[in-house]
Design a protein around this nucleic acid. Structure first.
Lengths: 105, 105
DNA sequence: TCGATGTGTAAGTTGATCCTTACACAGTTG
DNA sequence: CAACTGTGTAAGGATCAACTTACACATCGA
């Protein structure tokens, strides 16, 4: 989970994930979306995503096709859900308690 | 959002967030939960969390009281929601299409 | 006012990240 | 077989991240 969150904390990698979420894409195709950085840099980002279990690879002839593996985000999503949703619920409850107290004076 | 995800990618900081999710706690109290690392180290983690908007601080006399700020996770949670929930939906749909194709042969 | 308490900040070390260029290598095509 | 394509890996540099110890400061209590 650590690895997944760290992987997703980088904006380039998030963009890559969005690219391969709907369609399988080959490495060069992905790299072409990032003209500001070298192809090996993108290749390394793909490696990080793969090591974190966030993408799957499939070789087809000469190319490597990547696609997103949403399951890899399960734990990270669970944590954020816990902290965010539940946290907001508690915040709201606390705010309501506070409002009530104000009223009672 | 970058900052929030990076902050949350560290296991110590996630533990800190859990600690201050329900109750306000003072810095020393928090640091005491991590006997394996120095107090300044925890103080620095608190700074990172604060800079990322994930905790709020309040001074009370001598101590500083921290509490979680779930709103700070909004964007990060939205991204994971998008990648994870939607991604799984798509995966499921794809699997069903594949099953149908198998059947039709 | 003075010592004790609670915390943040400075400086420095070590290891991780991110990117670049150069290179290696398999598969495709003529 | 030879040149071409598509991609990963190696090596190195610049920056960042996570600690540690030492220190600075404000507040509290006698």
């Amino acid at each position: 989970m650590d690895e997944a969150l760290k992987a997703v904390a980088d904006p380039t990698r998030r963009a890559v994930l969005r690219l391969v979420r709907d369609d399988e894409r080959c490495a060069g195709d992905i790299a072409a979306q990032f003209p500001s950085m070298s192809r090996p840099a993108v290749s390394q980002h793909l490696r990080v995503l793969h090591d974190a279990g966030l993408v799957a690879v499939r070789q087809e002839g000469n190319r490597r096709l990547y696609r997103a593996r949403p399951e890899g985000l399960a734990d990270a999503a669970a944590f954020l859900q816990e902290m965010w949703t539940d946290g907001l619920t508690r915040l709201k409850a606390a705010a309501e308690r506070a409002a009530k107290e104000m009223e009672e004076r």
